[in-house]
């Protein structure tokens, strides 16, 4: 028998749903992702892998990303972002669904 574990996020269906539900992407993201529907989680992973593939991390401070034009378009037009704020920036494209 397991001790009463602290409830993980994964046990919260609403939170999980927010992350993995497929949503119709706004037009800016659609271009970046190459698909019209995606989840917040996938979108985040795509952005992060894009950063890695194109070596956009600042060579001196790896925590900073020097955005290229494509990335700038989806991340509020910032030329430099910190990795710390990446989840928030991605989340901006996924407004909360009104409760049905």
């Amino acid at each position: 028998m397991l001790p009463p574990l602290k409830k993980a996020v994964t046990d919260n269906p609403k939170k999980v749903a927010n992350l993995i539900d497929l949503v119709n992407l706004p037009s800016i993201l659609r271009e970046f992702m190459g698909q019209s529907q995606s989840s917040q989680l996938n979108c985040f992973r795509r952005v992060w892998s894009y950063i890695k593939e194109n070596n956009l991390q600042d060579p001196i401070n790896k925590n900073v990303v020097n955005c290229d034009e494509k990335l700038k378009g989806i991340l509020l037009g910032k030329s430099k972002i910190e990795l710390t704020e990446l989840p928030v920036l991605v989340k901006l494209h996924f407004p909360k669904q009104p409760p049905k």
Partner: peptide
């Protein structure tokens, strides 16, 4: 871990970091 678990941990950790900053 599942994607969701891994991501939500990362997200909350970064949130916490930003807050602290």
């Amino acid at each position: 871990l599942s994607d969701v678990a891994a991501y939500s941990t990362l997200e909350t950790t970064l949130k916490w970091l930003r807050k602290a900053r």
